[in-house]
Computed example of a mutant assay.
Amino acid sequence: MDEDFVNISFENMDEEHLCCAMADKKHQCGVQMKKAWLKEQIPEGHIFRKLGVKGKVFIEYAPLEKAWVPIHGANYLYIYCLWVAGAFKGKGYAKSLLEYCIEDGKKQGNAGICILSSPKKKPYLAEEKFLLHNGFQVVDSIGEYELLALSFDGTKPYFAENAKRGTIDRDTLTIYFARQCPFIPNCVEQIKNYCGSNGISVEFIEVDSLEKAKSVPCVFNNWAVFLNRKFVSVQLLNEGGLKKILER
């Protein structure tokens, strides 16, 4: 099965699609943004591995010290995203991608692999049941979000103290976002338009550096929402998703 996969590199990036946003024109700005971000991250050890077909089948991971998340741990790899969708489910692709990451970590002498998940299935997060079945264990938690790890040497990664705050000093709807997901520009546009049309104050805070990502005051994978000073979710929002949060 390994011969069906390809790793994104400087040499093939222009020809290869990014699985999560392929043909939808409204996300093409985000695709270009993501590719620019990838070009910055590949030298830092970032891996984007995908199935060589037009489908949502891929894994993204990076050395935890260089991963844009408020999580610490010595010599770990952090999985940003493990996604197998649609007709590709049930064919062993998720396990194959995860095994590739695990073997890569062992070859590099890493201490283990970690990933953000939740006991309750959530969009954009790998299913916890699948991870537990493959040897991962819950090593830290913040509310309904859990940090899972597969340790090779007994050490454990952990959430940064600032991530446990879960509060900010403003009542305004506030969204932290980074550039590593192709869906983000369209989400930002939809939320700006909806808030502007309905007289809702909203503030966007771009997390544009590793230092900022490590210091965000909440759980963060590339997006985080605050309302009435409290952390709400890491789920990317379109207009419909925002309405649901405002109606709670």
Rank of each mutant, 00 (worst) to 15 (best):
G52L: 05
K54Q: 13
K56Q: 07
K56S: 00
V57I: 11
I59L: 01
I59C: 02
E60Y: 00
Y61F: 05
Y61I: 01
A62W: 00
E65K: 06
E65D: 08
W68D: 06
V69I: 07
H72C: 08
G73T: 04
G73E: 04
A74R: 11
A74H: 12
Y76H: 09
I79G: 05
I79Y: 00
Y80L: 04
C81F: 08
L82N: 00
W83E: 08
W83K: 01
W83D: 12
V84T: 09
A85G: 14
A85Q: 12
A87E: 14
F88V: 07
K89L: 15
G90M: 03
G90L: 09
Y93H: 12
S96Y: 11
S96G: 12
S96W: 06
S96N: 11
E99V: 08
E99W: 04
Y100M: 05
C101F: 05
C101E: 04
C101T: 02
G105L: 02
K106V: 02
K107C: 10
G109K: 04
C114K: 01
I115W: 03
I115E: 05
L116D: 03
L116P: 05
S118R: 08
S118L: 08
S118D: 09
P119T: 14
K121F: 12
P123V: 10
Y124A: 06
Y124L: 11
K129M: 14
L132W: 06
H133P: 06
N134L: 13
Q137N: 15
V139E: 14
V139H: 13
D140W: 13
S141G: 11
I142M: 07
G143M: 01
G143F: 06
L147V: 15
A149M: 12
A149K: 09
A149L: 10
L150I: 11
L150V: 09
S151K: 14
S151H: 10
F152P: 00
F152S: 09
G154I: 14
